[in-house]
Amino acid sequence: MKALLYDINLCIGCEACVDACKEHNGLPEEPRDKLCATNFTHLVDVGDDEFYRRMCMHCVDPACASACPVGALQKTPEGPVTYDYDKCIGCRYCMVACPFSVPRYEWDTATPRVRKCEMCKDLVAEGKPTACAAACPTGATAFGERDELIAEAWKRISADPDNYAHHVFGEEEVGGTSVLMIGPKEVLDVAFDADLPDEALPERTWAVMSRIPAAVGVVGVGLIGINWIIRRRMALAAEGETDSTNDGHGEVQ
């Protein structure tokens, strides 16, 4: 599975990745300082010449893909989480579900799409790096196999433990992501919610969904059984009453 490794300590904030992204996806120049329907990545300035990049994290087991009722969002084996507009009904459950608040919507049109980084799925399918990784002058955004990038990340961390938090963000979080980030603890703490569980989020809904067939069977049979017992009892009671009083009032169908 392909992935991106973003190293906060190598990033100089030149925004070459933003420009490359805009060019590859045919997006307008502005805005470039937030995620929106016309901007899929941006840099957050945390002061002291330090930046971190925001973009779709391309989760290994994405909440958005499990949420989508029509399967418009898919995790491809190559790594990218892709979006198929022809299927999308616009329910926006993906936007609610995403643990990183990434998917954006085209609010100002009558034929809206969900918009987000698709990890240059066409380039990646050809084995080429993403536009942002190819454009990065310092190697802050690097493209490669996920396992190899994780190994590379840990190599950099152990070589310079003073400047790197002892943590590869995305190795474990929400079941792992295909965008990995390393850098100083202060910046990583600002960039990501510390409460994110390591468990893949779709497991929480699957725990319920997978039990539905059994629940329907058990409850269905139970209700039929209860109904049979109640009717039987009522019939017996009616019989007894008819025998003793013969007024017909207790008659049951």
Binding site: S66, A67, C68, P69, G71, C91, Y93, T205
Partner: peptide, 9 residues
């Protein structure tokens, strides 16, 4: 278009 993992579906 089925996604039987989706609660919304």
């Amino acid at each position: 278009m089925w996604n039987h993992h989706s609660v919304m579906w």
